[in-house]
Design a protein around this nucleic acid. Structure first.
Length: 257
DNA sequence: GCCACCGGTGGC
DNA sequence: GCCACCGGTGGC
């Protein structure tokens, strides 16, 4: 086992696991486990793996030390979340679907080259397109966003008339699917073909959300404009209130001194 | 400068 | 007390 890289069936093809026994020091005899990506990048911890693999692999049951999936064990592994004291919040460990989904969004990255010491690291394998899971929306089922007081936030309303197809025809899934499609695609979002509706598992078009083909009308656009305007007004009011509160606060502090 | 390696520490 | 995780550094 020592210093030999072995295949790791629980990870995608090409990933290797290595166990290195400590030879000296107080921890002599203990071992460190490392993983190597197909491109040779070394990983020292599960959080590091999760950050890298994002939504492409579900590592919630992955046991970093053994390199195997631990089924049914309710993942009681000692995953630490540094800088997060925890609270009554739902399980925010590595299985966090929100994070995994967020990572599929193609977000712009600013490459700063102005500083002489700067280095830009890149991983070609990671940069290229990753395979996507069919009906991934189901993984988000039952999750709700909440504000700092744990109050569940109201989700967005989709325009009526959208008809979800696939294994989970709930409106939640459709909302996630459509917002994700809008992020990922530069083309129009129009739904699935009629054959996909008959047998989604075979005919689904991954670049479109799993819903019946639809058309966006002038009326839809008008309604959405109103919604956006309303939200902007609310935001403006909140920001104004916040500025006023801060000013009042600093005035009070100055007077107290 | 890189990285293999061990130590330190926080969460359990 | 154990150990997952990651910081730090000596050796190259």
């Amino acid at each position: 086992m020592e210093k030999r890289r072995t295949d790791c069936p629980a990870l995608p093809p090409g990933w290797k696991k290595e166990e290195v026994i400590r030879k000296s020091g107080l921890s002599a005899g203990k071992s460190d486990v490392y993983y190597y990506s197909p491109s040779g990048k070394k990983f020292r911890s599960k959080p590091q793996l999760v950050r890298f693999l994002g939504s492409s692999v579900d590592l919630s049951c992955f046991d970093f030390r053994t390199g195997k999936m631990a089924p049914g064990k309710l993942q009681k592994s000692k995953q630490r979340t540094r800088h997060d004291p925890g609270s009554g919040k739902p399980d925010l460990n590595t299985a966090l679907p929100i994070r995994q989904t967020a990572s599929i969004f193609k977000q712009p990255v600013t490459k700063v080259t102005g500083h002489p010491g700067n280095k830009v690291k890149s991983d070609q394998q990671r940069a290229t397109e990753q395979p996507r899971q069919l009906f991934w929306e189901k993984r988000l089922k039952g999750l709700r966003s909440s504000d700092v007081t744990q109050e569940t936030l109201r989700t967005m309303d989709l325009p009526s008339g959208l008809h979800c197809i696939g294994p989970d025809p709930s409106e939640d899934c459709l909302l996630w699917a459509i917002s994700s499609a809008l992020h990922l695609s530069s083309g129009p979002i129009s739904g699935q073909s009629s054959s996909a509706e008959k047998n989604p598992a075979v005919w689904i078009n991954c670049s479109q959300p799993p819903c019946r083909s639809f058309t966006v009308t002038e009326q839809h656009i008008r309604v959405q404009e109103q919604v956006v305007n309303q939200v902007r007004r609310s935001l403006e009011e909140a920001l104004t209130a916040d500025t006023l509160a801060r000013t009042a606060e600093s005035t009070r502090e100055r007077r107290a001194r």
